[in-house]
């Protein structure tokens, strides 16, 4: 009973402290954006196997689609200011640069998926290294934990 009351009180306090962007608490917000990043990682790795010809390319278009869709969600997932995980505080202190990079990433992967649908995967993959700007952003905004 006591515990329930305290939990309720804590809940009420947490609500008051919530950032404008949503009803998610920090831990959930961090996990959520990590689900998106890990999706990008699995799909990029699958695509990389295809590019290295160790795996046949039947699913290439689907991987490009999945990457573009996940990329389109990424900026929104970082909007709630929730420092932690592997994200550096610069994500939010340099928001204009961070969001520009994320928008570029989303736009280029969407373009790649579109080319794949309209002209085939070979044409789409011509831009793959430029479109997948993962490392450029991580070098600045991610503190990778070993």
């Amino acid at each position: 009973m006591m515990r329930a009351t305290r939990a309720a009180a804590f809940g009420a306090a947490a609500i008051m402290l919530m950032p404008a962007a949503g009803h998610a608490d920090g831990k959930e917000t961090i996990e959520y954006r990590q689900h998106i990043m890990k999706t990008l990682n699995e799909q990029s790795a699958a695509l990389g196997q295809i590019l290295s010809t160790t795996i046949p390319g039947d699913n290439t278009a689907a991987h490009l689609e999945a990457i573009a869709l996940a990329a389109s969600l990424a900026l929104k997932a970082f909007e709630a200011k929730a420092p932690g995980g592997e994200a550096k505080p610069e994500v939010w202190s340099n928001w204009a640069d961070f969001s520009k990079r994320m928008n570029d990433f989303s736009r280029k992967t969407a373009e790649m998926a579109k080319i794949s649908r309209e002209q085939g995967t070979d044409a789409a993959l011509a831009n793959v290294v430029d479109a997948l700007s993962c490392k450029g952003c991580h070098d600045v905004y991610r503190a990778e934990k070993k």
Partner: peptide, 11 residues
């Protein structure tokens, strides 16, 4: 590809 694929630098 090296830049994007951890563990797949040989791609």
């Amino acid at each position: 590809m090296i830049l994007l694929l951890r563990n797949r630098s040989a791609a």
